[in-house]
Simulated scan of single mutants.
Amino acid sequence: MSESEEKITNLEELVLELQLETHAAKVAIAVLSTALNSVMGKETNLGEMYLTGIARAKPVELNHPAPDGYREKLDERVAALLGKSK
C-alpha cells in the first residue's frame, strides 16, 4: 500500500469514528433531554432555554478559528438537539 493510500485509509477510519461519536452524542442528548422532561413533569423546551441563556451570557470562546456565522449555526444545532420547538 502506498503512503497516499495509507493516509486515505486512515482518514476514512477517522471519519467513521467521528460519525459514530457524533451519532452517540446525539442519542445521549436526546435521552437526557427526554429524561429531564419526564422528571420535570412537563415540556421544558431545553433548546429555547439554551438560546435564551446564550443570548444573555458572554459568548464562550472557541479554541479554533471559525468562519463568520459559525457561532449562530452552532447555537441553532445545539438548540435543535436539545429539543427546540419548530
Rank of each mutant, 00 (worst) to 15 (best):
D68T: 15
P59W: 13
L32T: 05
S33G: 10
Y50M: 01
L32S: 08
P59V: 13
S4K: 10
L82Y: 02
V78N: 01
V78R: 03
T44C: 10
L18I: 03
G41K: 01
I8M: 11
V78S: 02
S2L: 08
D75Y: 11
K26F: 02
V39I: 15
E76K: 15
G69R: 03
G47A: 02
A57E: 12
E48L: 09
H64F: 15
L20H: 05
H64I: 12
E3G: 02
H23Q: 15
D75M: 11
V39R: 07
E48A: 14
T52C: 11
K26R: 13
V78P: 01
N63I: 05
K7D: 14
K42E: 15
L51Q: 11
L20P: 00
M1W: 06
A57C: 04
E76T: 12
T22H: 13
G41L: 00
N45D: 13
D75Q: 14
A28L: 10
M1P: 14
D75V: 09
T9M: 12
L46Y: 04
E76Q: 14
R77G: 09
D68V: 15
I54V: 15
M40G: 07
V78Y: 01
I54S: 14
V15L: 09
P59K: 10
L62R: 01
A35G: 00
L36G: 08
L51S: 05
K73V: 02
I29C: 11
E72Y: 09
M49R: 07
G53H: 07
L46G: 04
Y50I: 03
N10I: 04
D68I: 14
P65A: 09
T34G: 06
S85F: 03
E5F: 04
V60L: 09
E21H: 04
L18F: 12
L74Y: 10
K73F: 02
G41N: 03
M49Q: 07
K86C: 00
D68A: 15
V27S: 08
L14W: 04
N45Y: 05
R56F: 03
M1Y: 08
Q19I: 02
E61A: 08
E6N: 12
L32I: 06
T34W: 08
N10G: 06
L11E: 12
R56G: 05
A80T: 12
A55Y: 00
K84M: 10
K73E: 08
A80G: 05
I8A: 13
N45H: 10
T52S: 14
Y70Q: 06
L20A: 06
E17C: 02
K84R: 14
K42F: 10
A24I: 07
E17V: 02
E43F: 00
K7F: 10
L82P: 02
A55T: 10
L62F: 07
G83R: 01
E48H: 05
V27C: 04
N63H: 08
M49Y: 01
V15Y: 03
E6W: 08
A28D: 10
G47M: 01
V27E: 12
A25Q: 14
L74M: 13
N63C: 04
A55S: 13
V15T: 07
G83V: 04
S2Y: 06
A24H: 11
A79G: 01
L46S: 07
A80L: 12
K58D: 13
